[in-house]
Every structure is written in C-alpha cells, then in structure tokens.
Amino acid sequence: MNLKKRIPLVLALSALATSCASTPSAGASASSSGLTLKEQGSFAVGGTVVTAPGTFDPRRPSAEGATLHGDHAYVFYQVPADARPLPLVFWHGAGQSSKTWETTADGREGFQTLFLRRRFPVYLVDQPRRGKAGRSTAPTTVPATPDDQTWFGMFRIGVWPDYFPGVQFPREPAALEQYFRAMTPNTGPFDAEVNASAVSALFDRIGPGVLVTHSQGGGPGWLVAMRNPKVRAVVSYEPGSGFVFPEGEVPAPMPSLTGSLEATGVPMERFLALTRIPIALYFGDNIPEEPSPIPGQDNWRVRLAMARLWRDAVNRHGGSVTLVHLPELGIRGNTHFPFSDTNNVQIADLLSKFLADKALD
C-alpha cells in the first residue's frame, strides 16, 4: 500500500458501542476505550466506462456521445496506529453491503472495529451494483417484494416467528428492525466476473492482504484468489455458491428445497492457485445433515455439503483448506452472520488465531 501520496491523519474515535456480549481477548481492547487511526478514506476501484455513439452537445444534453462510469467497487478504509503489515479486505454477501461488517444490529462493535483494535488495516467493500457502488452499466428492475420473514429463515435466525433455541441473535425488537433495514438491492444484474474484477483491482492498488468474504461473496472471492497473487489468504464465512473445481472433478448438482446447487469447472492451472494460500471456511449452527422440510435450513444443508467437497478437492491437490463447523467446536447458536452474532468476539478470536497460525498477522 503506497501511503506517500496520502495525507496521514490521526483520529481518536470513541467506541461504537458501550458493551460487548463477551469479554474481549488479549488481542482486543475494551470497547469503552478510544481508538487511534493514522488514516482513513474512501475510493472507487475497477469498473468500466460506456460511451454512447454520437457527439455530446452541452447546449442540448442527451445520451449522444455521453459516458457512463459504472461497475466499480466502493471501498472505505481505516488504518490504525502501529498497523500490522497485512490489511483485511471485508466483502459482504447477498442483499448486503459493507454495513455487514460495521456496528451490529444491537449496537455492538462489528468486525470493522474489532480488527482495527487488533491493529489490522481494514478495507470494507461495496461490490459493483450494490450499496455505494450502485452505478451499473446493465439495467435491472428493483422489485419491492415483502420478504423479511423469508430472510429471517434463510439467515437461520429461526423459523418465523420463533427464534431457534439458544440462537446467538439479540432478541430485542429494535435489533431485528435494524437487521432487516441492512438489506439492500442489486442495482444491476449480479455478475461474479464483474465483482471479481473490481476486487482484484483493489488488491492491485493496496498490495498484499487477506480477503474475508461472506456468503455470496465467497464465489467471486475464489475468482479473485485464482487471478491475483496479492491475495495471501482467504477467510470465508458460510460461502454458499460459486464453488470451483478442476475440470473433470465437478461434483453432481445437489438438490434442495431452494433449488439445485451447482459447482463450476475451471482449468487445473487456474484451480491450483487456490492450493498456494491458506484458506479457512466457517459455518454456523442449525444446519441439518439430512433433508429438512424448512427451506432456510435445507438450503444450507447442501451448501455446507458442497463446501466440504470443495475443501477435499483443494486439499487433495496440495492445498491448505480448513473448514470449521462451529458446533463441532462446542460453539453453538450462530446464524448465517457469525461475525455479528452476540458472540462475535469469540468468532473474531478464531479468525485472529487462524491469522497467527498462518503467520499473517
């Protein structure tokens, strides 16, 4: 990351929340303490420019000869004082934006601040055609469909209107209100290649770092890791689609109540890039091993199963993929958003340990 062209700044930030649900580890300061940054900022990266035929006439403005800048990512970054060398790049999932990593629905510190306290530079991404990167070069229709209850189930908070017993989600109505209001639509068709190109351009700009993805961001994340050697590791929370296998080794589609999950084949030379970096996958609770009549749970049954096959494929070819199913560690009740659940400090500690074990901190 070239800091010479940027104006450094020092900001003392008060805490984003007054309490944490868990006691912070030795690597994290208490949430009541201040936080010193040496710089922060935002920028667009990647994208394309479309130019319409003709000549633009400023006296009679029209589309003729005009340009459209779109399909870029929006990035907000913060660099703490005494920063560690490798930044963490946080990439959201479907229906989400960089808000995913910010303050939790019940007002606690999210991964953005928890890892700033652990001295990591953090980069929060809004992928192309989402959130603050909403300018798209391809049109779409944004529906206004009532679907909060569907997402409640798909994100494994419970089976509406009931919460799962012991779920690590705050029960205050105001928290659920904030959770639903974090949803944001696509402003153009979802395109994994468009997204991967923009995030790869981010790594070209900032240099080596660790990519942290969630859900739908997991698939394009593999594409970035295969094309850009500046991605030194990938940590993926509940990647649900876009799994890539070597050509000739693609598993059969996996049917579920929410549709059939299919993987993609790529040339072996591309796939092998995934074997050269450490990768960790984390999955939460309430994911059944057998078919379920509940769509939100059956959906994640096949996605966890596909993730296990993907782990085995990468490791079979010499890779280093660790898949952590949190209940197997005795960590129970986590939703599709473990990094913002009520035990998110405990989840952050697992990420810190992974980074330390792989000499990435």
Rank of each mutant, 00 (worst) to 15 (best):
N2A: 07
L9K: 13
L16K: 13
L16T: 14
S19D: 10
A21Q: 13
S22D: 15
P24N: 10
S29L: 14
A30H: 14
A30S: 15
A30V: 15
S32L: 07
S33H: 09
G34Y: 12
L37H: 07
G41D: 05
S42M: 08
S42I: 06
F43I: 03
G46N: 08
T48N: 14
V50D: 03
T51M: 04
P53F: 11
G54I: 08
T55K: 11
D57G: 14
L68D: 04
H72E: 03
V75P: 10
Q78H: 05
V79E: 12
A83K: 11
R84H: 07
V89E: 07
W91T: 04
S98D: 13
T100N: 01
E102L: 05
G107A: 01
G107K: 00
G110D: 01
L114M: 08
R119A: 09
V122W: 05
L124W: 11
P128C: 06
R129C: 15
G131E: 01
G134H: 13
R135W: 12
A138G: 03
A138D: 05
T140F: 02
T140Y: 00
D147Q: 07
D148E: 13
Q149F: 13
G153I: 05
G153T: 10
F155V: 04
G158H: 11
D162H: 14
Y163F: 15
V167C: 13
E177Y: 12
A182T: 15
T184V: 06
T187Y: 08
G188E: 08
E193F: 00
V194E: 10
N195P: 02
S197E: 09
A198F: 01
V199A: 01
L202A: 05
L202P: 11
D204T: 06
R205T: 14
G207C: 02
V210R: 04
T213C: 01
Q216R: 09
L223M: 13
A225L: 02
N228Y: 11
P229L: 08
V231A: 00
V234W: 01
E238Q: 12
E247S: 05
E247C: 02
E249N: 13
E249P: 10
P251C: 01
P253T: 15
P255T: 12
A263H: 07
T264K: 02
P267D: 06
M268S: 11
F271N: 01
L272V: 07
A273T: 12
T275C: 09
A280E: 14
Y282I: 00
F283T: 00
F283M: 00
F283R: 00
G284A: 00
N286M: 02
E289N: 02
S292W: 08
S292C: 14
Q297F: 07
D298C: 12
W300I: 09
A305H: 05
A307P: 10
R308H: 14
L309P: 09
W310G: 05
R311P: 00
N315A: 03
N315P: 06
G318I: 06
H325I: 02
G330R: 08
R332H: 04
T335C: 10
T335D: 09
N343M: 06
I347Q: 11
A348N: 13
L350Q: 07
L351T: 09
L351K: 04
F354C: 03
F354P: 06
A356V: 10
D357R: 03
D361Q: 12
D361K: 11
